[in-house]
Design a protein around this nucleic acid. Structure first.
Lengths: 143, 143
DNA sequence: TCCTATTTATGATTTATATCATGTTTTTCC
DNA sequence: GGAAAAACATGATATAAATCATAAATAGGA
């Protein structure tokens, strides 16, 4: 559905949203265990996110990664696209070319709703909203 | 979400359900183009399905693959499990170990519904039902 | 009984994903 | 201005998924 890499990325972004700011940056080495991924792999992922402006970073001493208000404007789908390259979002569950929303195939019609719903949520949910939900205690995020 | 291999398999099973019977078996070479996969790869998939009794087969001259009434009793999830090994059905969308249905994580709570729905449909839909829908013209399946 | 058409079994190859490792650049502090 | 601390860039390796190729087993028909 979405790659492991994208999952790591989403977790990391949420964590940064909850625990970082421009005045309190976070280092890869202090984050990788929580995400349950190796330090060097997380580093690569964070760099990719930074390059696409999903998160912010500062080099050198006192550097690190953090989330600004602007960063929070991205959707979860943006994150997935940066890491999975947008290829997973194909219209038909069975990969039938003549199948689309107006003319859904047998399975699409049944199963497709679940997938469409999944995509829709990814597309509509902004990082900032998710963070807000978590801060208000409405949601659970055990990292 | 589900592998390409599983998609090929589902397509093939549906096709067999619509166009084959014990007295009218179908050869790999007459099917692979419709599924849009190579002949040898489809052969491998059909063999795997046959071994797990999802479809039926006969060797030798006048042999081929076909679907019996008994075969139709399997669910779509059965097909997926045979080819993907059941590993994709992990509980949490983000792979968080402490997250489950009773205690859903932030994303699980939002996105999870889509995935759960998807799984449910796979689990509940029997091959025979899907075939019936198609034969009655209620569904679309352009192969 | 022998030949041919078919599934079946097995292994090799390619491609994609995930992961690791190492060197380079930038920034801040002393 | 030099040294240390950090992100950044790049390439190598490992693992898994997808695909291909070939030989063996089986069954039917002449």
């Amino acid at each position: 559905m979405i790659s492991k890499t994208a999952k790591y990325a989403i977790k990391a972004v949420i964590y940064l949203g909850l625990h970082s700011s421009e005045s309190h940056k976070i280092l890869t080495r202090d984050l990788y265990e929580k995400i349950q991924v190796s330090e060097s792999y997380l580093a690569k992922i964070l760099q990719e996110l930074s390059r696409h402006n999903i998160i912010s970073s500062a080099k050198g001493r006192n550097g690190g990664f953090y989330l600004t208000r602007d960063n929070g404007d991205h959707t979860l789908m943006d994150i997935v696209r940066v890491l999975d390259g947008g290829q997973y979002v194909d219209s038909c569950v069975l990969g039938i070319s003549q199948c689309n929303a107006e003319h859904p195939c047998a399975l699409h019609d049944k199963v497709g709703k679940g997938k469409t719903e999944f995509n829709r949520v990814l597309e509509e949910t902004r990082v900032s909203e998710l963070i807000a939900d978590l801060q208000e205690g409405d949601a659970y995020f055990p990292l």
